[in-house]
Design a protein around this nucleic acid. Sequence first.
DNA 1: CTTGAACCTCAAGTTACTTGAAGGAGTACG
DNA 2: CGTACTCCTTCAAGTAACTTGAGGTTCAAG
Lengths: 147, 147
Amino acid sequence: MNLHVRVFTIGALAKAAGVSTPTIRYYEEIGLLPPAPRTAGGQRTYDDDDLGRLTFIKQCRDFGFGIDQVRVLLELSISTDRDCVETRDIAQRHLDEVRQKLAELRSLERRLEGFVTRCNAACAGGPGQDCVIFKDMAVPAKGGCCG
Amino acid sequence: MNLHVRVFTIGALAKAAGVSTPTIRYYEEIGLLPPAPRTAGGQRTYDDDDLGRLTFIKQCRDFGFGIDQVRVLLELSISTDRDCVETRDIAQRHLDEVRQKLAELRSLERRLEGFVTRCNAACAGGPGQDCVIFKDMAVPAKGGCCG
DNA sequence: CTTGAACCTCAAGTTACTTGAAGGAGTACG
DNA sequence: CGTACTCCTTCAAGTAACTTGAGGTTCAAG
């Protein structure tokens, strides 16, 4: 088995976890990662545990969890005397938010579609035309394009 | 007809356009709104033109356009010698971005769904259980929940 | 004339990093 | 051993689009 401990520089760790090196220093600064041990020269060193923790953080961020949520999830992932339900609830709430956002974006997509379509229908004319595209947008109703 | 000019305080304008008062000051500061005339006491005053402009900005922001895009759209909406195609293109590009974001969110929704489902299936147990939910997330593959 | 809401400016906080400047550490080559 | 080159260090500031707070002034009503 692999009994030897891999040691990473900050750059190697960054590449392995798929984040940037300033991001790692930032995570250390805000306490998501523990202060890394240093070489005699002051450079940070990491091991596989750090890679695991950082990878976990990265995955959570990819899931769209905010830093504070990641903090909670990290804690939950370490303590053994807490149940999974809390984690599930966090994920569920987050899922609800994602769905909310999805609904908003879908509505926005439809509105933008309409906008572009009306543009294409009414504004095929070249330059020099007096485009009235925005007249409708200065009133609180729906946006229009080119009259 | 309405020949009298409506005059707004910043608060009234904010309410009419659906934004906050600090936001209006901020828009003035960054040049989206012209510097407002002041009363003798130094308070800002606005009229219907300002309401129109601010409403336009609000609509654009609701459409998801960034401040810099709004700047361009404002200019396009004022100049008469430019054609509508430029506007359409900006909207089209933005629509593409929205669709890209939608695709990402949909994917994220599916992943979160899976996460929550696995949580419910495996983690119905109460507190005190040793939750291994995060073991999978410390490796670069897909996230898992509760083994 | 006094009260209270709404207004003023200026500075800092928010999120999650990124970017830049100026300089030190580590490694390989000759 | 020198030097070249990459990677590392810290610290400060920048990003987007505002929000929040402190401390003080103006306006309209009663």
